[in-house]
């Protein structure tokens, strides 16, 4: 059975990052290149250029 000793904790700390970082990267890439997000990103980049003092809530 799985032994919860020093060796297995070290093995876990050495490897879990590999999986979650790859998963994270894939997630980010999907979000960034999701076609329907394109317009939203372009708007976001453009919208900040204008008006400095316009109202708000």
């Amino acid at each position: 059975m799985f032994d919860f000793d020093h060796g297995s904790i070290v093995a876990f700390s050495k490897s879990f990052g590999l999986f979650y970082l790859i998963a994270l990267s894939i997630g980010v890439l999907i979000y960034v290149y999701w076609p329907s997000n394109k317009q939203r990103f372009e708007d976001a980049a453009r919208n900040i250029i204008h008006d400095e003092d316009k109202p708000c809530r």
Binding site: L21, S25, V28, L29, V32, F41, E42, A45, I49
Partner: peptide
């Protein structure tokens, strides 16, 4: 990411890239 595009009057070159580098840097 705010003052440079504002001052230059041009949107950031690639907004997508800015998101990718954000997550890259933070993690």
């Amino acid at each position: 990411y705010y003052y440079m595009p504002k001052r230059a009057g041009r949107p950031i070159f690639s907004y997508r890239l800015s998101i990718i580098s954000f997550w890259g840097i933070t993690f």
